[in-house]
Design a protein around this nucleic acid. Sequence first.
DNA 1: CTTGTTTATGGCCCCGAGTGCCAATAAGGT
DNA 2: ACCTTATTGGCACTCGGGGCCATAAACAAG
Lengths: 222, 222
Amino acid sequence: MRSGSGPGAGRPQATSHAAIEAAAFALFDERGFDDTTVDDIATAAGIGRRTLFRYFPSKNDIPWGRFDDSLSGLRATLAAVPDDWPVLDAVHHAVMEFNRLDDTVVEQHRQRMTLLLTTPALQAHSVLRYTEWRHVIAEYAAGRYGLAPDDLLPRTIGHVSLALSLSAYEQWLREPDSRLTDLLSQTAPVLRSYVEGVAAPPRTATGRARRQRGSKGTTVRP
Amino acid sequence: MRSGSGPGAGRPQATSHAAIEAAAFALFDERGFDDTTVDDIATAAGIGRRTLFRYFPSKNDIPWGRFDDSLSGLRATLAAVPDDWPVLDAVHHAVMEFNRLDDTVVEQHRQRMTLLLTTPALQAHSVLRYTEWRHVIAEYAAGRYGLAPDDLLPRTIGHVSLALSLSAYEQWLREPDSRLTDLLSQTAPVLRSYVEGVAAPPRTATGRARRQRGSKGTTVRP
DNA sequence: CTTGTTTATGGCCCCGAGTGCCAATAAGGT
DNA sequence: ACCTTATTGGCACTCGGGGCCATAAACAAG
């Protein structure tokens, strides 16, 4: 651990997370993730293979960059939300903040997320990251409701929040001209209309709006 | 491919999916998933390591068993739902059917799901299975709404349905005496109350019920 | 009984990810 | 010059996974 900016003693670091990440993304873009070996990345970054694994615990972690820091930001955003906001609004606000992008990095972020969401090995690995993310949401919800983070309600809120975010992200990647924040804002109403048993009016020209009558009665209604 | 029950010619199979699965679970139970090598499983099943990989594409696939067949069942259940049911109810019904368990296998299923949901390597790998599952749900919803499966609404329904199921499963594993179907039925109302901005009354003794100001619209709880 | 044909088996060898170990390196301080 | 400290990176190893291919074990036809 480098202690802040203190130089201290010892051999200086030969590289950085950012440098490795840049070298890796160049190769991923050129040959794809699976056809790029860790040796390739290490060589491109001018370091030894063994050193690379001290910066990133696995090849799969490289595309995620410094995700831990983002999580701290998410936690901080939630903590700053006034207590009288509905939990749904608080979470939605935090998700929007979490995914706010500077215009200059939006294409870079799109490339990163494309990699993460289309490469099977990365899709799989990402779950571990999502779990931490969900836990932050669940902890906040638990605090607001006076429950434990692994009670059913907070846990469900974590899962559903992630579901909505992923849904928005996938849609964002599909539509080159869309804006991520727009899609994130859309998922909540979409969910609400679904839960209330009413078909959302399709935004595409081909869709026919069909109205549902709720009469099943065995389970859902209190 | 064995063609139905026709014996035909050729060397008979030395084992079966079920036999490998049984041998594997015994070892997983004894030493844990990570400390069991593929060689161990093959030896225990009395086959060669190379043969094992012809029955299961990867070590991670062994705990999932024959999941494809279950997916066909899910598809069939959805297809059999009358068209005038609300989509939410149809999906909920299909999810319940999908997770219906014979009393004799409930403990076995619990063991399997514990393995799948607590082993990091399996948590990660399971995403690929979940994707197929979500796709079945999204396809159905798309058909009902007259949309494409990768439009925002069907995709979101797939994600949210999975989120609710996983939430129920995790809770089920935490509470030894709970019933999976009960929990699956609970997640939908939990989601509804959350979306409508009203705190669900905590069911645990320690929780203090905290009511949110419902600035967001209609209240449904008594 | 012998000779094909068919199909599954499993050994051999390879690759890539990831880890433990440890000597070498490059700083700062005394 | 010498010590302390921290990072580097090479070597060897394990494990998951896949390509290749000779071989075993069934059945059918001669």
